[in-house]
Write a protein that binds this DNA or RNA. Structure first.
Lengths: 226, 226
DNA sequence: TCACAGGTGTGATCTGCGTCACGCTTGTAG
DNA sequence: CTACAAGCGTGACGCAGATCACACCTGTGA
């Protein structure tokens, strides 16, 4: 069991630099916990002292307005981790994290994490790379929200997702509602735009699976309209 | 001259952990360069191999759409640094950086920077904290763009800026145009909203200086309208 | 002291998209 | 097989805010 856990950990970039012994130590320090679909794993503004690694399932990172509207900052899948920020800067959680499916999580406490980071600079380096990646994405997202119209943002999202999967298709199953919350639009507008994309052959939708029909065309949509 | 430079560096969080010797070494490694107002310090998509520290002046970090519209991701002042991302992950520059005033910059090359980071873990830690801070800000900005209307975003920006200055006033001189580009709105809409704020006593504008007249009121504006 | 550039104030229009209000489809639990 | 919950498609309507088009104001360099 512990062996399995440390194998899993070793597949995660921020733990790559660790040798067998260290991985084993980590394996002993983590707790494992299940969260049913819909449960809140952590609350925005709470003080945080744990790092989470998603072992199975799917979670969303969201901001929620007082009126209840949700903005999805990210959807994470197996192997992803979250909650590091609070460990790094001792600030409260910056967003809610909610299980979109039944999920299994590994939990690591701040002190254990910090000790390991200090002891192994390559972990710090990997973390820096991960934060850089997220920062770039966040800035791109800001640019998209300001410069692109809704179809443009959808096109960009689809291109991103297909790139992520390495194939001209999107693996994640996303409802229109979810897409809408990811790009800051209403479900109805997303429905209409997706219909448009289908009709013009830019994408193919079959049985809850989306594939890119015409990358060129989509990319054009993802440009600023002049 | 070098002594001055290392004194200046020591005032910057990511260099705090360094002792006199190390600071002196850094002081020798940096080049200093002047950029006139309006000049582009670095271009998005260029490969990057330098870290910049702003010694005097003011710069903006911007994304530019093909139609020429600018989105301002941030305005930096003396003591701020930028360009680390490309040093960390070897990716191209994520945005343009343009001098808003005549500015003096210290430039540090990738290899010099990396060596120092590796040699001194506290630098890595400070960097992690800085990136965390930026990531939180970026996520907040995304939330604001989706959840708030234009007056709300302006109110939030003003509150942020006054917090930054530590006083109920804003030191930075910002044109309506600049504010508009920071919050993703048009100059005209910003003008009208600011007028509104003045008329209702939320802010006081006197001679290119803005101060908060009624924090409570502004904060209310910065909430999601139900 | 003129003139010119950069910034602001304000009206008039136009439009993308949010919101409301449905009805239809599909998966799944009883 | 039935019914109920989730998700999707589509029309109608209204409005926040972009855009266009000026007039005005203030600093500063010739």
């Amino acid at each position: 069991m512990i062996a399995q856990t440390s194998d899993f950990l070793s597949s995660i970039p921020i733990f790559h630099g660790l040798d067998r012994d260290e991985l084993a130590k980590f394996g002993e320090l983590v707790r494992e916990r299940a969260y049913p679909k819909g449960s809140v794993i952590l609350f925005q503004d709470d003080p945080g002292d744990s790092l989470f690694v998603l072992r199975s399932g799917r979670v969303k990172v969201v901001l929620i307005g007082e009126d209840g509207r949700e903005v999805i900052l990210g959807v994470l899948e197996s192997g992803a981790h979250f909650g590091e920020l609070a460990l790094i800067d001792d600030q409260p959680r910056s967003a809610h994290v909610i299980a979109m499916e039944d999920s299994q999580l590994l939990i690591l406490r701040r002190e254990d994490f910090r000790r390991r980071v200090d002891a192994n600079p390559s972990v710090a380096w990997a973390l820096l790379q991960e934060l850089s990646r997220r920062l770039r994405r966040a800035d791109e997202k800001i640019g998209g929200l300001v410069l692109l119209d809704v179809p443009g943002r959808i096109a960009r999202l689809l291109l991103d997702l297909s790139q992520e999967s390495g194939r001209p298709a999107i693996d994640k199953v996303l409802t229109h509602q979810t897409i809408a919350q990811m790009i800051g639009a209403s479900r109805e507008t997303v429905s209409r735009a997706m219909k448009e994309f289908q009709d013009s052959g830019l994408i193919l939708v079959e049985r809850r699976r989306i594939s890119i029909g015409n990358r060129e065309g989509l990319e054009k949509r993802a440009q600023v309209r002049v």
